[in-house]
Computed example of a mutant assay.
Amino acid sequence: MSPSPVTPVTAPPPDTASPPRRYDGTSPFPKDAPLPARTGAERVYVFVTAVIVVLPFVALGLVGWLLWGRLIHPTDIALAAVLYTVTGLGVTVGFHRGLTHGGYRAVRPVRIALAVAGSMSFQGDVIGWVATHRRHHAFTDRPGDPHSPYRYGTHLGGQLRGVLHAHVGWLFRNDRTPADRYAPDLLADRDIRAVARAFPALCVLTLALPFGLGWAIGGSWPYGVTALLWAGLVRIALLHHVTWSVNSLCHLIGDRPFRTRRHDRATNLWPLALLSFGESWHNLHHADPTSARHGVDRGQIDPSAALIRLLERLGWVYDVHWPTPERVAARRV
């Protein structure tokens, strides 16, 4: 398969992209200018976000009730594991290491497939996701970062409020990241634009698949319902919270063996490594954002890097930015 042309990835805007603000690294961020009143479309966006955040918790309650009646099947667990892996790697390999940071280039079918898989995670359309994450890197843990746990300062009350903000609260602020500024390369890519437009349909698909497969395998609709709960809603909830934990916990607790920019407190948090497919080796990622591998030390499992390596051997990705010993050593504390 011959590589198709890929639009070069635009680096996140430099630190000077926003007006300079005084920040000492410990105080609360300066107060934002008053946010604009929400339009009708933005109110719909907030409502949909609330449904996406709350619905999986409702599902957990239903699952608890179903478990009381022992209505859980091996098919539910198998489907949940498969869909968690597919959609999770779509986010980590497709959205993050590929489209956001340009850690590799992919042939067109793989690029589209990974974008579709990531969109089925229910984490937002691909262009909005990439734009927000590039903005996070441009202003990590200082004014301008959309989800820093240090927004309210480093004292105990501020940290408690900040971790809630970094984990989920930022989703409800009317603080949209402009894609034309942070992801112009994706706006110019007609394939990625099509995947972004298809996001609502892909959300329906990510729930319809477990329901349909559960019904087909089990032979009756109750099997479809339990598969929908476990492999649909609960799977989405788990992946949400793992992703959000990288935003919150991986800037608060863990090791920092590599140098990052001033005020950037990204950490390595090993308990999340497997569930996050290697994303919780977050300190190295912030020290070297374009690296296709985040877990570079012995014993640091990185399933996302393993998939990129496999795709490279198949000839489906190329120009992979693998970390070299010299590059890693230069960033080590």
Rank of each mutant, 00 (worst) to 15 (best):
Leu314Ile: 09
Val163Ala: 07
Asp297Gly: 05
Gly162Pro: 10
Ser27Ile: 02
Gly118Cys: 05
Arg43Thr: 12
Ala106Glu: 03
Pro146Arg: 03
Val242Gln: 01
His136Ser: 05
Ser304Asn: 11
Gly40Ser: 15
Arg332Gln: 04
Thr100Val: 13
Leu209Ser: 03
Ala81Val: 14
Pro143Lys: 09
Val93His: 11
Leu307Ile: 13
Leu249Asn: 09
Val82Trp: 06
Thr177Cys: 14
Asp288Gln: 14
Met120Lys: 11
Gly254Thr: 10
Leu83Trp: 08
Cys250Glu: 07
His241Met: 06
Ser119Asp: 05
Thr39Ala: 02
Leu99Val: 08
His240Leu: 12
Ser220Pro: 01
Asp24Gln: 09
His155Ser: 14
Glu42Asp: 15
Thr92Trp: 10
His96Lys: 09
Asn247Leu: 02
Gly278Tyr: 06
Ile52Glu: 03
Gly153Ser: 09
Ala17Lys: 06
Phe277Gln: 12
Gln159Tyr: 00
Leu186Tyr: 03
Phe199Ser: 14
Thr206Gly: 00
Phe211Glu: 00
Ser2Val: 12
Asn283Arg: 07
Leu89His: 13
Val130Met: 07
Val242Leu: 02
Arg134Cys: 07
Asp24Ile: 02
Arg135His: 03
Asp180Tyr: 08
Pro325Phe: 07
Val44Met: 11
Asp24Trp: 04
Gly94Cys: 07
Ala330Thr: 03
Ala17Thr: 06
Gly102Phe: 10
His263Tyr: 15
Trp316Pro: 04
Pro325Arg: 13
Arg70His: 14
Tyr150Glu: 01
Asp24Glu: 07
Ala196Asn: 07
His263Gln: 10
Arg97Trp: 11
Val82Arg: 04
Thr140Phe: 06
Phe122Ile: 14
Val225Trp: 09
Arg298Asp: 12
Ala208Trp: 08
Arg161Trp: 03
Leu269Gln: 11
Thr206Trp: 00
Leu187Glu: 10
His321Leu: 01
Leu233Ala: 13
Pro3Gln: 14
Ile77Cys: 04
Val63Arg: 00
Asp180Cys: 01
Leu66Ala: 14
Ala227Met: 05
Leu83His: 01
Met120Asp: 09
Phe258His: 03
Phe139Asn: 01
Pro5Gly: 08
Arg332His: 02
His133Ser: 01
Trp244Gly: 04
Ile236Phe: 11
Gly212Met: 06
Phe122Gly: 12
Arg298Gln: 10
Gly232Val: 02
Ala138Asn: 07
Val48Tyr: 13
